[in-house]
Amino acid sequence: MSFIILSLDKYLKPTTNPLVRFIFVGIMNTCIGLICMFFFLNVAGISYWTSTFTGNAIGACFSFLLNRTYTFKSNVSFHKGLPKFFATIFICYFLAYFCSEKLMEWTNQFHPFSTSIEENVSVLLGSTLYTIANYLGQKYFVFKNIKTA
């Protein structure tokens, strides 16, 4: 993991703001998560909720370490940060993917799509909503640096 962080620091200057670092790390996490989600959904034939949950869980493992050490350069301890991180991930996950699923179901009333298209578009929309909510939660709740005296 430290190799990844050193590589990121080498290619993105340390002065880059946290949003740019979060987006860069998020692209990596999102690619990993989406590849897993689409594999589970379309190749393995696993349900929408199980596929999206499992894909996000895999991406979350990378996300915590990279966002704590690289993105936000936080001094929040693992003991305090980890429960907040997983609570944020969990809440963002359910809100984003629930809303995207319901929006696609509603849209399907006016312009019918096949179930496969509806689910895949829902995954992409959910991923976008999740990313926005997750950044805000991590920046202002999970990895908010503690002021030291």
Rank of each mutant, 00 (worst) to 15 (best):
C31N: 12
I32L: 15
G33T: 07
G33A: 15
L34K: 02
M37N: 03
F38P: 00
N42F: 09
N42P: 02
V43M: 08
A44T: 10
S47V: 07
S47I: 08
S47T: 13
S47L: 07
Y48H: 06
W49P: 03
W49K: 03
T50A: 14
T52F: 07
T52K: 02
T52S: 14
T54K: 04
T54L: 14
T54E: 05
G55V: 02
G55M: 08
N56M: 07
N56H: 10
A57M: 13
A57Y: 04
I58W: 03
I58F: 12
G59K: 06
F62I: 04
S63Y: 05
F64E: 00
F64I: 06
F64T: 01
R68W: 06
R68I: 03
R68A: 12
T71Q: 01
F72P: 00
K73P: 00
V76N: 01
S77E: 07
S77H: 09
S77K: 09
F78G: 03
K80L: 12
L82A: 13
P83W: 10
P83H: 11
K84H: 07
F85H: 00
F86H: 08
F86V: 15
F86A: 06
A87M: 12
T88N: 05
T88H: 02
T88L: 03
I89K: 05
F90P: 00
F90T: 15
F90K: 01
F90A: 04
I91Y: 06
I91L: 13
Y93N: 02
Y93P: 00
Y93L: 12
L95C: 13
A96G: 06
Y97Q: 01
Y97F: 15
F98I: 07
F98L: 10
S100D: 05
S100G: 05
E101F: 08
E101H: 03
K102A: 11
E105I: 00
T107I: 07
T107P: 00
T107M: 12
N108C: 09
Q109W: 09
F110S: 08
H111F: 14
H111C: 10
F113E: 04
F113A: 04
S114K: 10
T115R: 11
S116G: 08
S116K: 13
S116Q: 13
I117L: 13
E118G: 05
N120V: 10
N120H: 10
N120K: 10
V121Q: 09
V123K: 00
V123G: 01
L124P: 01
L125E: 05
G126L: 08
S127K: 04
L129F: 15
L129G: 15
Y130P: 00
T131Q: 04
I132W: 08
A133S: 14
A133P: 02
A133W: 12
N134T: 14
N134A: 11
Y135D: 02
Y135M: 08
Y135G: 04
Y135S: 06
G137Q: 00
K139Y: 14
F141K: 06
F141N: 07
F141H: 09
F141W: 15
V142Y: 03
V142A: 04
K144S: 10
K144V: 11
I146N: 11
K147Y: 09
A149E: 14
A149R: 11
A149L: 12
